[in-house]
Design a protein around this nucleic acid. Structure first.
Length: 515
RNA sequence: CGGGGCGUAGCUCAGCCAGGUUAGAGCGCACGGUUCGGGACCGUGAGGUCGGUGGUUCAAAUCCACUCGCCCCGACCA
């Protein structure tokens, strides 16, 4: 139901064509020694038996993040931060390509700012973290550690927006935000997290609404084309929308436990905020008008999404386009002589100019240990090279996707084969995630069927819906927590009755248990 | 905030019920050696205010009181 996956260019690869006269690769299926692949993985709990435990173990053992001295806040370690950068950078590029400029606004927001928009403050007040003292004295007015910056930005942009000629103003900022969460989880919900928040101001409602769609589309691209994670796009229900928004939209992805994860949101505010902050401009007929504004955000939560969308019992699986290390080389040698032979042989093939993110693991560990460790860390492609391979002028290529298959590749072909293999993996991961989602998404038309589904199965349920909040409450109670995720975009208007209450349906809606 | 559990080495834990030399194990770490194609092995070594405070006792990781912190389950969430 979603568009075709667009064959992606892999990162900075230059896709060199393969000369026809070169030898072709052979796929061999190796048999691992008994006992080595019986599903027992040291250090991490099994995904199938304890999903939250598995997630926690993987995040820590793969060195993405760890607990910190501050309750509810985590430390993002270099491997995890690099992964975030590989999501952030293409998103930043998209944001700039669509005409936005990066700003920076203060992290401390006067409490009174947040109190001006009624629904907004009602939605966020429980999550405020206040700064009450400075320079050893109590402040006249407490400052809130920003939970989001709508209020600050509206207050600042008042000064820069005067005329329709100043519009649109398309801002974005990369920062950290703070929310006093009760139950925290690595990347998914912490008391401090990193994100980008875009805030835009427009002359007309139509223009602002186009902006909302445009940025949601950017999020779709990041999720699908970069993170190999299919998403449903759509509008949030009234109960699920952002506090203060006229309506909210989101991209929703399916995790391997069948739960939904909101991977990005884009909101239309109408004139709610600009009215509350008395932000006005003179329109084309010389009338004072409030601009229509939007905001949209994507956060470090994406890292958690990638972990839960692709990982397995052996650990992480990273899509090549965002993997910090795309190819890891495990050299196999005994003597210094064998070591230098490997170095010589690999040199030209793995030159940085090849544009692939490669790491050669020269550590003094046994190869088997390295295989397991890099699989845990989700590196998409591994090269094994030892004396036996060099004698044949070949190396072994192993994909994280299907670990038991080893492909024998002539050294001469390596430079062209790597980008090609990475591209294949990227597409295979998307296809696999899409298949998983398809297999775990059903269309139902009664509450009884929904209750039964959420009792016995995992995944998404699509039903016709009338749009009433009471239905959401009822479903949530009866199903042990399923909520509406999105009203899918461009879905045909259903002819039938609401699956929950039987009144005429207005649209389809997707139900799921969610993070 | 309600219900349940746990604090002993960097990590996972034993020891506590029946108080008694110098507080233990595995993993990890450091050094040396043998190894190296799917998580190697041997030897040596470093590492502890037993969460904190107070009490009982000749003597407390162990018993008592208080306190702090963490984890899990319910109400809110990018």
């Amino acid at each position: 139901m979603r568009r075709e996956f667009r064959p992606a260019q892999i990162g900075r690869l230059n896709g060199a064509a393969r000369p026809a006269e070169w030898p072709t690769a052979r796929i061999i299926v190796s048999h691992m020694p008994a006992g080595s692949d019986d599903g027992f993985v040291k250090d991490i709990r099994k995904q199938s038996q304890d999903f939250p435990g598995w997630y926690n173990d993987v995040v820590r053992k793969a060195e993405l993040a760890d607990n910190s001295p501050v309750a509810g806040s985590m430390v993002i370690r270099p491997y995890g931060y690099s992964l975030w950068e590989n999501i952030r950078d293409p998103l930043d590029a998209l944001i700039k390509q669509t005409g936005h400029e990066n700003w920076y606004f203060p992290a401390l927001i006067p409490l009174s700012f947040l109190q001006k928009e009624k629904e907004h403050v009602a939605g966020f007040a429980p999550e405020f973290q206040l700064v009450t003292h400075g320079g050893g004295k109590e402040l006249e007015e407490p400052l809130v550690l920003r939970p989001t910056s709508e209020t600050m930005i509206a207050s600042v942009l008042r000064n820069y927006i005067q005329s329709y000629r100043d519009l649109p103003v398309l801002t974005n900022q990369w920062n950290n935000v703070f929310r006093w969460e009760l139950r925290t989880r690595f990347f998914l919900r912490t008391r401090e997290f990193l994100w980008q928040e875009g805030h835009t101001f427009h002359e007309t409602a139509a223009e602002a609404e186009e902006e909302v769609d445009r940025m949601l589309e950017c999020y779709r691209q990041i999720c699908e084309d970069w993170c190999a994670m299919p998403v449903f796009l759509g509008r949030k229900s009234e109960t699920e929308k952002f506090a203060g928004a006229q309506y909210s939209t989101a991209v929703e992805a399916m995790m391997k436990d069948g739960k939904a994860l909101q991977a990005g949101t884009s909101h239309y505010f109408g004139q709610n905020f600009t009215r509350a902050y008395d932000l006005t401009f003179t329109d084309r007929s010389n009338q004072r008008e409030h601009p229509h504004s939007t905001s949209w955000g994507m956060s470090t939560r994406m890292v958690g999404a990638v972990v839960m969308a692709h990982g397995d019992d052996f650990g992480l699986q990273l899509p090549p386009r965002i993997a910090p290390i795309q190819v890891v080389v495990v050299p196999i040698f005994r003597t210094e002589d064998e070591k230098s032979q490997i170095q010589e042989a690999l040199g030209p093939a793995l030159h940085p100019a090849a544009g692939v993110r490669v790491k050669v693991d020269w550590r003094d560990e046994r190869p088997g240990f390295k295989f397991n460790e890099w699989e845990l860390k989700g590196v998409p492609l591994r090269i094994e090279v030892g004396p036996r391979d060099l004698a044949k002028g070949e190396v072994l290529l192993v994909r994280r996707l299907d670990r038991s298959k080893k492909e024998s590749v002539p050294l001469l072909m390596l430079k062209s084969r790597l980008p090609e293999a990475l591209s294949e993996i990227q597409q295979a991961m998307y296809a696999r995630a899409l298949q998983f989602r398809t297999e775990h998404t059903v269309r139902l038309d009664s509450l009884a069927a929904m209750v039964d589904f959420f009792e016995h199965r995992i995944g998404f349920v699509i039903t016709p819906w009338c749009g009433r909040a009471e239905d959401e409450k009822l479903v949530q109670e009866r199903t042990g927590g399923a909520t509406t995720r999105v009203i899918p975009k461009n879905a045909a208007k259903p002819a039938g009755a609401c699956a929950v209450c039987g009144t005429p349906a207005v649209s389809d809606v997707i139900w799921a248990k969610a993070y």
